[in-house]
Design a protein around this nucleic acid. Structure first.
Lengths: 341, 341
DNA sequence: TGCTTCCGAGATAACGTTATCCCACGCTGA
DNA sequence: TCAGCGTGGGATAACGTTATCTCGGAAGCA
């Protein structure tokens, strides 16, 4: 049983049929052995297993999935594959624990690419999708959800369709950051963060404004939401640090902003108290080590898979949004005292 | 056409059959339209497309793959999904450019898990596998490779089977690091790196020893290969920095070692000149900013997919190992001058 | 011994596609 | 007018599994 490809004799993959012939049993019996069906006699089992290893047979997962109607795979559409992605890792772990494989695709913060990735997952008939939504609307998912596809949004909710979601407690996190800086004597605190068209950017900026209003601090010239680019962050930071009454402390709304801010501050990092939203590896070896509001990625990933499995089991359950607590990790940069007025 | 699952009426997915019925054409005609077969009349095309969007039909990729015999997917078994992984990202990009999807799985540096991941990919009949090998032997891949599965090793070669490989120029990289430190006056240079049972650990340690031998520097008590743990790195570092003639410069053999070393050094980082093997995000905002030997992840990933596709096209082509150049990025830590003797 | 019962194992029909045939139709040329 | 031919489109058989149905035979009981 060989096949000529490119001029080379190359063995074709053995199928269940070949195993059956080799073992001298019926096709169905091989299937039973492969699926650990207990209704097969012991001697047949060993004969079939011998044939399997003799032929290096491995069942074709596609055919199995096609026949069974389920794929045993969850899709994960995440923003980025190149950078650290603790949530994806947690999703991977939780899925494996349940015997599910993960098909991860990167959306690169691009709406079209997100759509393409998600639809490709649907064509592969994944059993569910975990998505870190980018697009402003996900109505193209509506028919899929209606057809019973479990979809769980992570970090931000899906707009335009009703899907389960796992979010961090953004407001509480900003509150913790603000309080920490206040406790250390800061009154003039600035915020630079993500674009308010993005859900998290909106929530965090709003929470920050609420904190300032509650504490009676200055608001004007202190809040800078927008697209995260090196130039915008440095412009904002320059504005915040200049003038007659410069800020003495800074809250950054996401990792990208934090890093751009630190890059801009360079050796002067110790001049400004900083609390970053979201932790990242190496935050502890910076000088001063960075105080952060850390999201609980492990819990977020695990919860996402829990919700996904629950919905697969009962598609009629009410749509649920889970808010995961965040944690302030004090490492030094947020505990720098305010200079005496 | 509804199906009762968990007490809820849930629409079954439409199949090509349903589309054909809706459009009043034969099954095969729908298939032709879906695959852009030009031999279909324009009015039939539009009728079929109308039916497709009316029913929200999406072809079942599994059935298509089963029938065609090809899956349009490459598997990527990488060490880690949680941390930054620029090679995986490059593999993803290069694959997408060729119309291939990527099934990424994490091996977590565990031999059993690697094996499980790779075999799972085989069962899914991926068209090829990119692997960052962990296990000491990959003989379990031999039958797959014999059956024509293209396998490309990345970062390290596969032991036990002959597969294409894409490696960084480890020896040249260590040479660059050593030379940079020498140029800045260092004579007592230490090396801490990965276990020599690991290919890269072995190559880099060997290259380091060769550099020392060539320059006539001291070797004893200066080379510390081993498993990367916080305690081992700090023990090694303490040894290197103590005694009558402590090292004035350090080369670290991989990112994990670099980070542990910096963590141990803490505020004293400026006391020791450091060059790290492999770059990582944020290396530039450390103080002093970290000089590194950077691997060219983009080229590595792209080359891996190139090799994979080439082998798929011609399984008889000779097995090839590509060595990708590395680059020294001077940021400060490697340019600290040696203290006067 | 003869009948029922039960259990292990084989034939066969799906699952949703694509590929191979094959036919019906319209056009051309004699 | 009819044979010949090209072309668009339909029936049908795979692809490699699993589920349903059926059947042969061994064991249990009177």
């Amino acid at each position: 049983m060989t096949d000529r490809v490119g001029g080379v004799a190359r063995r074709k993959r053995p199928t269940m049929r070949d195993v059956a012939r080799e073992a001298g049993v019926a096709l169905r019996t091989v299937s039973r052995v492969v699926n650990d069906d207990p209704t097969v006699g012991a001697h047949l089992v060993s004969r079939v297993q011998a044939a399997i290893s003799a032929l290096d047979y491995a069942p074709d997962e596609r055919a199995r999935q096609l026949r069974r109607g389920t794929s045993g795979t969850v899709g994960a559409a995440v923003r980025n594959l190149a950078d650290a992605h603790p949530v994806l890792s947690a999703v991977d772990d939780a899925s494996r624990a349940r015997g599910l494989a993960v098909l991860a695709m990167s959306t690169e913060d691009d709406e079209a690419r997100e759509r393409e990735a998600v639809l490709s997952m649907c064509r592969r008939r994944v059993d569910g999708i975990v998505i870190e939504p980018i697009g402003l609307t996900h109505d193209y998912l509506a028919p899929e959800i209606a057809a019973g596809l479990p979809v769980v949004a992570v970090d931000r909710p899906c707009a335009g369709v009703s899907a389960d979601a796992v979010l961090s407690d953004n407001a509480a996190g900003i509150g913790m950051a603000y309080r920490q800086l206040s406790v250390h004597g800061h009154r003039r605190i600035a915020y630079i963060g993500d674009d308010e068209r993005i859900f998290t950017g909106r929530e965090r900026a709003a929470a920050f404004r609420a904190c300032v209003a509650a504490s009676g601090g200055p608001l004007s010239g202190m809040v800078f939401p927008g697209v995260v680019t090196a130039s915008r962050v440095s412009t904002a930071l320059a504005a915040v640090l200049s003038g007659p009454a410069p800020a003495t402390a800074l809250i950054t709304g996401n990792v990208a902003t934090t890093i751009e801010a630190l890059r801009y501050l360079g050796a002067d990092a110790g001049r400004l108290a900083v609390v970053g939203f979201d932790d990242f590896p190496l935050a502890d070896i910076l000088r001063p080590a960075l105080t952060v509001v850390a999201q609980n990625s492990a819990v977020i990933g695990r919860t996402a898979i829990d919700l996904l499995v629950a919905r697969a089991a009962d598609p009629s359950r009410p749509v649920q949004t889970v808010t995961v607590p965040v944690e302030l990790i004090a490492r030094g940069s947020g505990e720098l005292p305010a200079p005496p007025a």
